[in-house]
Amino acid sequence: MSRRYGGNPAATIILIIADVTAVILILWIAFFLLDANTANDLVSWVHHAANWLSGWSRDMFNVKSDDWRTILNYGLPAVVYLMIGHAVAGRVNRS
């Protein structure tokens, strides 16, 4: 990843943070859709982290299907974090 931004360590760190954030949100979507056991420590941690990361967008969409509501309410922030993180990393690299 560091080669993508000319070895700029700040850009690499920003990319890693954006990617990890998106992975946590996407992992919660997968756990929810696959009906993972929320009593499991890993599933519980991912759920709490995803709730915190998506606090600004949760319940933005009120669709009747629980699956679609989860996909939209956690998927949107994942996409936003990726877009912003990659845009900021590109900008940092140009500085």
Rank of each mutant, 00 (worst) to 15 (best):
R3G: 09
A11Q: 04
V80Q: 01
L33A: 08
A89E: 01
L76S: 04
G75C: 05
A36L: 03
M1P: 12
A50F: 03
N40E: 12
W45D: 07
W28N: 14
W68N: 12
L25P: 04
A36C: 01
I16R: 13
A22P: 03
Y5S: 05
L25K: 03
L34R: 06
Y5W: 11
R4L: 15
L15M: 13
W45K: 12
Y5L: 01
A87C: 05
L72M: 12
S57Q: 07
D67P: 01
M60V: 12
A50H: 04
L25D: 06
A89V: 10
D66W: 00
M60A: 14
G6Q: 05
G85Q: 02
V23L: 13
G55E: 13
T21Q: 03
I17P: 03
A39Q: 13
A18Q: 05
A49L: 11
G7D: 05
A50K: 02
G55L: 02
D59V: 08
V20G: 04
R3E: 13
A87F: 09
R58H: 08
T70K: 06
V46K: 04
A49D: 02
I13M: 14
R4G: 11
N8E: 03
A50G: 03
I24K: 01
L76H: 04
L34Q: 05
R69P: 10
W56T: 07
I24V: 15
L72D: 11
G90T: 02
M1A: 09
T21I: 02
S65V: 00
I16V: 14
L76C: 05
V88C: 09
A87L: 14
D67R: 04
S57F: 08
I26H: 09
G7P: 02
D35A: 13
R69L: 10
V92A: 08
